[in-house]
Design a protein around this nucleic acid. Sequence first.
DNA 1: CTCCGCATTCCACTGAGTGCAAGCCCGGGC
DNA 2: GCCCGGGCTTGCACTCAGTGGAATGCGGAG
Lengths: 250, 250
Amino acid sequence: MRGQPGRSVTSRVLALLDAFTPASPALTLSELARRTGLPLSTVHRRAAELLAWGALERGVDGRYRIGLRLWEVGSLAPRGLGLREVALPVMEDLYEVTHENVQLAVRQDDELVFIERIAGRHAVPVLTRVGGRFALHATGVGLVLLAYAPVGVQERVLAAPLERYTELTVTDPGRLRRCLAEVRRVGYAVSDRQVTMDALSVAAPIRAPEGVVAALSLVVAHDRADPVALAPLVQAAGRVLSRALGGAHG
Amino acid sequence: MRGQPGRSVTSRVLALLDAFTPASPALTLSELARRTGLPLSTVHRRAAELLAWGALERGVDGRYRIGLRLWEVGSLAPRGLGLREVALPVMEDLYEVTHENVQLAVRQDDELVFIERIAGRHAVPVLTRVGGRFALHATGVGLVLLAYAPVGVQERVLAAPLERYTELTVTDPGRLRRCLAEVRRVGYAVSDRQVTMDALSVAAPIRAPEGVVAALSLVVAHDRADPVALAPLVQAAGRVLSRALGGAHG
DNA sequence: CTCCGCATTCCACTGAGTGCAAGCCCGGGC
DNA sequence: GCCCGGGCTTGCACTCAGTGGAATGCGGAG
C-alpha cells in the first residue's frame, strides 16, 4: 500500500474509538481525522465499517457517536456490568442502611474506573460518572485498589507526580506509602476531603480468588459522619461480595 | 496477501467481538477461531492487538474475555449508559411508588436491548439481563418500540415468523398489526402473559425530538395488578423523561 | 457569484496481513 | 522415559485490501 508504514489497520480502528471521550462523545469525520492524525479518506472508510457493524452511530446532526452494539458487547466485560450485577443488591442494602452515595470501582492500569453508583438524592453530589476514570491516590476506592495492587503499579504511581485536588490531598510519596500500609493493616481506607472539601469517603476491598478485584465505598458529607463508624458497614458489604466471588475474607 | 478475498481486516476484528455472547463470555483462542471461521494464526494476531488495547482481557484460565476498556468506551453510547443516567432517577421514583420491576429498553434493528432495570426484590423475577436482546413482538417495551418504529421495521417484523413464548403470545401478523394500532391510539402497551405465564407488563414511550427513542415498563405478577391502573403511572414517568429529552408529549 | 469546511469518491501503488506449515509447551497415557 | 493430542505461537513468501493524495460534491456564509 501507499500508507505510512508501522500502523496496523486494527490500531487505526481502535484509535477511532479512543477519540471518543466523556468530554467529546459526538464527533464529525474531520474531528475524528484531526484527533487520530489519520487522513480523512482513511477515517471515512474505517468509520463506515464501524457504522455498518453498529460500533458507531450517526446522529441527526451527522456527528458520529458510540453505537449501541458496542455498549452491548462492552456489557459482557466481566469487570463491567458483570461485576455490577453481582454487587448491585449489596450496594442497595448499603444504601438502605446509610442513605448515602455508594460507589463501586475497579483498577484499570494505573487508574480506577467507576463501575456503578447509587446516588443518594439527598447525599453529597459526586463529580464522577459511571464509566469514568480517576487517579488512584485520592479517593477511598482508589486507596484500597492501590493498597492491594501489584507492587509494580504502586511504584509507578508513587514515582509519578501526585495530583493535588484539595489542600488535604496526600501528594508526598512517602506519606502515601505509609497510608497504603495502614489501609492494608486495618482493611479499609478513609479519604477525608482529599478530592473535594465537601466530602469524605470510606472504602473496603472486594476479594476474588485471584486477589482484590474491586472496591466499594460510601461517600458522605465531611461534617455529617464519623468515618470510623461507617467503616464496619462498608467492610461487611465488601465481605459479603468477596464471599459471593469466592474470595478469602480479610 | 494470500488471504481469502472479500473480508476486510475490520470485519475480522469485529467478528471476534461478535463471538462473545452472554451465553459464552469467555473463549479460548481455538474456540474464537472456530466461531469466526478464521484461521488460528489470524485470530491470534488480531486478538493480540485487541488485548494490547484493552478490548479483550485474558483471565487466569487463559481464556479471552471482553476487556474493561471496551466497556468504558461502550458506556459512552448515548443510547446506553447515557440514556440510563437520565432515566434512572425517574425509574427510581416509579419503583418507590410501585415496588415492582422497572425496565428501560431501546430498539436496535429489529430487536430490543434492555438498558437498565430496577429489580424489585419481592417482585416477579425477570429472565432478561441488562445488555440483553429480545424480540419486539411480545414484551410491553417491545410493543411500544415496534408501534412507533419506522414502517420498514414493522413490515419486516410482521413478515417474519413471530416466535411463540406462551399460549397468549400474539403470533398472527394481522392481530399484531391491530395491537400496534391500539398502542398508538392509547399511548401505552400492555403485554399480558405474552412472555411468561407469571408476568404482565405495561409500557410507555419516551420521546425525543427525533421521535420515540426508548420505552419504559413495569413488570408485575399477572394476578397482582390491574394493567389499566398502572398505565397512567408508567405514562407519567415516560412523559417526564420525554420532557427531559426535549421530546413532544404524547 | 466565490470561498470555506466538511463529506465522499477515485485510482494507482504497495506493505500489512494472510494462511499454511512447522515448532513449542504442557499434561496424560503407556 | 516416550509419544500423542490440544492448544498456542512464530516464520515465511505471496498478494490484495487498504492507503492517501487529489478531485468532486454539497451546503451555508459573505
